[in-house]
Design a binder for these strands. Structure first.
Lengths: 242, 242
DNA sequence: TAGCACCTATAGCAGCGTTATATGAAGTGG
DNA sequence: CCACTTCATATAACGCTGCTATAGGTGCTA
């Protein structure tokens, strides 16, 4: 197709648009800036992409296919639930790495005219969830699960993007991720052979019990026993690893 | 201040902007449309609001205070968890009722310059959650819980707005809502004022923890401690009255 | 050489947000 | 009743935007 000499105008337009979109921090980028940076005049842009939005869609599509590729090379772990976590984190990371692209993809939501890749992201997630369902780990349909997970994932990512990079706290992501996953999937007991860290479920259960005990003291334990019990429970509830 | 005769230009601008924003389905609304609809010329707009965005902020602020008022008149149920559900649903409903406003508020997220009401929405939710925490129903700090809930809430609402109104399935909202709430709060099998027993949930939690501990032994407890802990757990798991 | 696609450039339109400047109206002190 | 400030509105225009009607190369196939 092309030697290394100089990319075709179409490519230059794509790169210039991507670069300017990345630099100018969320503010709109004009077609004139883009065409000038690509050393090209306006009609060239419209000849190749028909539209400013067409160009942006193309830019997004490029970044998005890169994202999807990364996802595809990700999900071979064999543990469906762990795959879900990885995809969630990958989604968030993609949003933080390419906030401009991400906002175009998910922030600019208009009924109709919404980038088709949102749908394909949903489809892909649904595929991963179907595998989880096949392993009898899902408690709802993959379709519903995918929508719920994607919605929460987008919400979290938008919120993280919105706040200054310094103050970002990924705990928000991890917490919401676990919330949605645990609502959608069974808590994957069962297969400890390969599982080195089943701790999350223990922690969750410990927290639950701890909370339950706050409102009702069981009479099966003496008060001194209960005191020590609660102390241990507290210790378990504080996850050490991860 | 004003008779019923005719509103002041400032008011007319606000109303015209709100109306046009509502009608024109997500497409941008120009200042010229607005000023013309308000039977006013451009400088009047800039005199009163300084900016197009200033005008839009004012419009959003109006709708948002209405929303916040509705929320405030809502949260007197006395049951913190049920309050959370109501606020979640109210949030979603507001988004579906005023999608244009909603998108300006939560969709247009740019670092800096983001409408201050997002912060106040978060603060308000945190307030509700603080009440839940006071009732010992929270398993995380109200701050974190508020951020997580709001993120998921926004994500769900955006997704619902994005899809055609006919196809909207509020199940997505309910499902995600329960997921986040149950991750953030204890499941508080209703113990209203009368019944302070609540043993079932304790038993259930104990059983869950017991089960979880079977597959993964925490390293926070020594083996002898764990032995006694499990014994007590076993005792708690056995209902006294059976 | 002619014809034909394809790609790019010149020049310009209508619309946008915004503003420098000027005019009107309304209250206040002399 | 007049000067005076103060606020609110209007005229006209600037620089920018996305976009395009039209025309001019360029390289291929015949």
């Amino acid at each position: 197709m092309k030697k290394g000499g100089e990319p075709a105008p179409k490519t230059r337009l794509l790169r210039a648009a991507a670069a300017l979109l990345a630099e100018s921090n969320g503010e709109p980028v004009s077609t004139r800036q883009i065409t000038q940076a690509a050393r090209v005049t306006a009609p060239t842009l419209y000849h190749h992409f028909g539209d400013k939005e067409g160009l942006f869609d193309a830019v997004v599509a490029e970044g998005f296919s890169e994202y999807l590729d990364a996802e595809r090379n990700l999900s071979a772990s064999g543990q469906p639930i762990e795959d879900l976590r990885m995809h969630w984190d990958n989604h968030v990371q993609f949003g933080l790495d390419h906030p401009h692209l991400y906002l175009v993809m998910f922030g600019n939501i208009r009924p109709e005219r919404r980038p088709s890749m949102v749908a394909s992201a949903e489809a892909f997630l649904e595929e991963v969830l179907a595998r989880a369902a096949a392993a009898a780990r899902l408690v709802v349909s993959p379709h519903e699960a995918a929508r719920s997970m994607l919605a929460a994932n987008v919400g979290v990512t938008l919120m993280l993007i919105a706040e200054p990079a310094a103050k970002r706290n990924l705990e928000l992501s991890a917490m919401t991720r676990e919330a949605v996953i645990s609502a959608v999937a069974t808590d994957s007991e069962g297969d400890p052979t390969t599982d080195t860290e089943g701790t999350p479920s223990v922690v969750v259960a410990a927290i639950a019990l701890n909370a339950a005990l706050q409102s009702s003291h069981p009479d099966q334990l003496s008060s001194s026993e209960l005191k020590l019990f609660l102390e241990w429970l507290q210790r378990i509830s504080t996850r050490s690893g991860s």
